[in-house]
Amino acid sequence: MLQVHNIEVVYDDIMLVLRGVSLSVPPGRIVALLGANGAGKSTLLRALTGLLDVHHGKITRGRVTLDGESVGQLRPAALVRRGISQVMEGRRIFGELTVEENLRLGGYTNPKQFRRRCELVFGLFPVLAQRRRETAGYLSGGEQQMLAMGRALMAEPRYLLLDEPSLGLAPRLVEEVRELIVSINRTGTGVLLVEQNATMALSIASHGYVLETGQVVLDKPAADLLADDDIREFYLGLHPAGAGGGPERRSYREVKHYRRRKRWLS
């Protein structure tokens, strides 16, 4: 079980971005993490993979645990060895390197397993096998996302953290990514799925969290979240009026407050 207990994360010693977040990813499950831009989703993934340092961020309170053991202070390499891999926001493939070299880097911590893992990854992503000698920067956006996922799988993680894998992909590719996440999960890999596309994420997750300005405001089984009116309105855009996306962003709490008041008044 991969967990964070009540963590606070601060950037540049002053910006409090996560304020007491708790979350669990049970082994072999898919957990969705939703939230508006700037809510702190990527920050949470950084805290789980040792990447806060690069951003001058720190965990100032709370713990990150893997099977009960505290792992919040470990370096990224140590976390990868323990089975936590992340596909970062924006894919971040090495565009100047070949597809195969990208995969080699994914398996950097365990080069002996390269061949075997490569076969596994090529099984899931045949397109990577075809293009293995090509420069990764020339792949299409969809193929790059496949490569980013394949690269993370080269470490054979027990927990795979995905940061907005459907970002910028056409609906057909989003569907493909969804299927891939399901197949990856079927091999026993736990998945923490950060998504703006809440419908997609909740359709495959068993549990979901909603993060808002650094706090978990909802923590429910995915099915319940899908059924929640407020979630439907705010994150799935399924409200009846279909207000065409006004520029101002309302927060989940405001929506709730507003609804409560409406209910109360009616």
Partner: peptide
């Protein structure tokens, strides 16, 4: 290879271990 990866994207290289 690690050096080339770090040259291109330090954080992404870190994330690979």
């Amino acid at each position: 290879l690690a050096m080339r990866a770090v040259a291109e994207d330090q954080e992404a290289a870190l994330a690979q271990g």
